[in-house]
């Protein structure tokens, strides 16, 4: 092997080492990016399901109460007791409005509690898995496309439900 060949070999080795180093550096700097489907996460979260059931029961109770007032109004009207019927109607509308307002405020409170919890679980989940960026897709166009392999909704949902269960 003459001197020229030796130099070429040494140079190619050096170039290979440099490119290997650059590749390693790029790989190390690569940010792990994933996304989750906000709607699916919210719908599947146990706390949300529990609150939904609580609200359903509350609605049934209140509907039964309003139904019985409505029945009373009808009976009073049938008996031509107009004054009493009018008072009962006012009571009905007042109660219905109050229930509606209370339900809306309860819904807001529950939603805030659910998202606070999910946000915290997402932070802990990302820390545990060394995830740098996690997008939340909500169908509004913020995230137009992402490959399915980057979708961690099911994983985060399982993690959140396990954490919520206190395990």
């Amino acid at each position: 092997m003459n001197r020229l060949h030796k130099n070429i070999l040494a140079l190619s080795l050096l170039i290979s080492l440099i490119s290997l180093g650059v590749t390693m550096k790029l790989l190390m700097n690569e940010k792990k990016t994933y996304f989750i489907n906000n709607g699916k996460l919210y719908e599947g979260f146990t706390l949300k399901v529990e609150y939904e059931n609580q609200l359903k029961n509350l609605r049934i109770q209140r509907k039964n109460m309003l139904d019985s007032v409505e029945l009373t109004i009808r009976q009073l009207s049938a008996q031509s007791r107009e004054e009493e019927s009018k008072v009962a109607q006012e009571y009905y509308f007042e109660k219905a409005k109050k229930f509606e307002e209370e339900e809306a405020s309860l819904l807001d409170e529950y939603n805030a509690q659910i998202w606070k919890r999910l946000n915290q679980y997402a932070i802990e989940f990302c820390k545990e898995r060394n995830i740098d960026i996690m997008f939340g897709a909500n169908g509004s166009g913020t995230l137009l496309h992402a490959s399915e392999s980057m979708d961690l909704t099911n994983d985060l949902l399982a993690y959140s439900n396990k954490k919520y269960a206190g395990k």
């Binding site: 409170e109 529950y110 509690q113 606070k116 919890r117 269960a165 206190g166 395990k167």
Partner: peptide
């Protein structure tokens, strides 16, 4: 043993802690 509580002062919602 599962300890369940809610801190209404802070409005946390239900919290659960399970000791298997």
């Amino acid at each position: 043993i599962k300890v369940i509580f809610e801190d209404r002062a802070i409005n946390t919602g239900k919290m659960q802690f399970e000791f298997s």
